[in-house]
């Protein structure tokens, strides 16, 4: 994951697309929550959040 973040960061810097960062982070977080929410212990917190 560390490698992924550093590569993505480097990519956005080179492409001058830093404005994409918050959107990508938001989407990755939502996606992660949705994946984790599939029958895991954090499901109740996901329901509270949404």
């Amino acid at each position: 994951m560390y490698l992924f973040i550093t590569e993505l960061w480097a990519f956005m810097r080179v492409r001058k697309k830093m404005w994409l960062a918050p959107l990508v982070v938001l989407m990755v977080v939502i996606a992660a929550l949705l994946v984790l929410a599939e029958g895991s212990v954090i499901s109740p917190f996901v329901y509270v959040l949404f």
Binding site: M27, V28, A31
Partner: peptide, 14 residues
């Protein structure tokens, strides 16, 4: 398309 990207394709190195 986004779920596919966020789950797999974006992490293509892995």
């Amino acid at each position: 398309s986004m779920p596919i990207w966020l789950k797999d394709k974006l992490f293509q190195r892995t």
